[in-house]
Design a protein around this nucleic acid. Sequence first.
DNA 1: CGGAGGTTTGACCACACTCAAGCTGCGTGG
DNA 2: CCACGCAGCTTGAGTGTGGTCAAACCTCCG
Lengths: 234, 234
Amino acid sequence: MSNACATCPVRDRAACAVLSEAERTTLVTAGHTRDLKRGETLFHAGDEGTACATLVSGVLKISSVSRDGDERILALVHPAGFVGEMFQPFANYDVVALTDARLCTFSQNDMENAISRYPVLAHALLRRSQEDLHTTRQLLELTGKNSASEKVSSLLLALAQAASESPCHPVREFELPMTRGEMANMLGLTIETVSRQFSKMEKSGAIRRSGVRGIEIVDPAPLRQASESSAASD
Amino acid sequence: MSNACATCPVRDRAACAVLSEAERTTLVTAGHTRDLKRGETLFHAGDEGTACATLVSGVLKISSVSRDGDERILALVHPAGFVGEMFQPFANYDVVALTDARLCTFSQNDMENAISRYPVLAHALLRRSQEDLHTTRQLLELTGKNSASEKVSSLLLALAQAASESPCHPVREFELPMTRGEMANMLGLTIETVSRQFSKMEKSGAIRRSGVRGIEIVDPAPLRQASESSAASD
DNA sequence: CGGAGGTTTGACCACACTCAAGCTGCGTGG
DNA sequence: CCACGCAGCTTGAGTGTGGTCAAACCTCCG
């Protein structure tokens, strides 16, 4: 609530970066900072008048559950990402923290007002929405017609990329933000298949595992090759 | 170029519907009406500075081709829909007419200008973009973890819906706008599997086929049931 | 009438799913 | 501090759905 913008790690990349200092301050007085622990839910599918938010740190998942109870992960959200269905009266999806996370939240109303007041903000959100659409399409492409090893390789590279601060090069060693089951749900596979792929990749020397979530990418080449054609989502 | 808006069949549903009569006329002088024959390409992946367009009539597909040459259909576009990656210097996807189609096209520049001049237009496009994101996610959900019969049933119902003018009830009898191969590419199946599903559905009495693209939905119940949980794209 | 693109159908096969058992790592409580 | 328990992970064996390959059939058009 106090002006956290000054030290905000995503101040240059988030949607609000297009606003002037004064405008941003005005906007922030309408919003709240919120902290989530791993596993905590931000929005629940079916909720009425959900808010929206910019992710400051951590990783979120956007998912839906079919009536037979299994979850489908539709997207990941990384810092500077924006979540919230601003024009929907009811939320369509669950949004849950995969890691401890911090966000900057706004009510639908406040956001609508801000959009009307600052056209440049609408512009920025439009741009971001198109990017989200693009990454969703990439995931659609990936899950459509590829083998299990292609899917897992792509996801692994995408996660390595996301774990890195620099936008270009993936980090060599990192912690997976998700369980095997979540990776499976995201890729349209089963837990067992994902697990087997990891074992295979370790046996072939492409990766090394430390603990169950620690990953070191020893040789990216076979992964890149396996992921041919398209990298996984954001 | 002359004011076609007066008789435009999507004048109330397209993005430009939020503009005043005068504003709309101004915008249209920047744009061009364009007619496409079935199979004709609007944008080609990799093209520089592609335009964008509102679809007036017909059906388009948005797709990408992996380097091994097979196409993946990522979305369908129906009348009043908007296509074009306004912020991308190069097009990411192919956009091709599935049926004869008519569009209202604008250059990236003209569109950028219009967005700046008419904030309400940016707002409308943002809304539409979020809807596109939603339908893409529905398709992602569908193709993720469902059986072939669920996929084909869902697509069939979605196409019946789209073929109808009324937003609520699907039409009983219609022409498929796409080939078996295109349906397969969209659902992540093969031509043969799609074909087998159609045969099965006809044998069970749920549908009747006339010619190869004519479909009559005799009994929607088993289709709805098979499509459990989520309907296919737009 | 002939050809081509698209569709249907069949036989076979493989990849990923299912079911089942055992293991690892971690947190809790005695 | 160790024992226990539980959630998540790994590994194996067997099965089934949808893919592959191949041939025949429509149907539309020149």
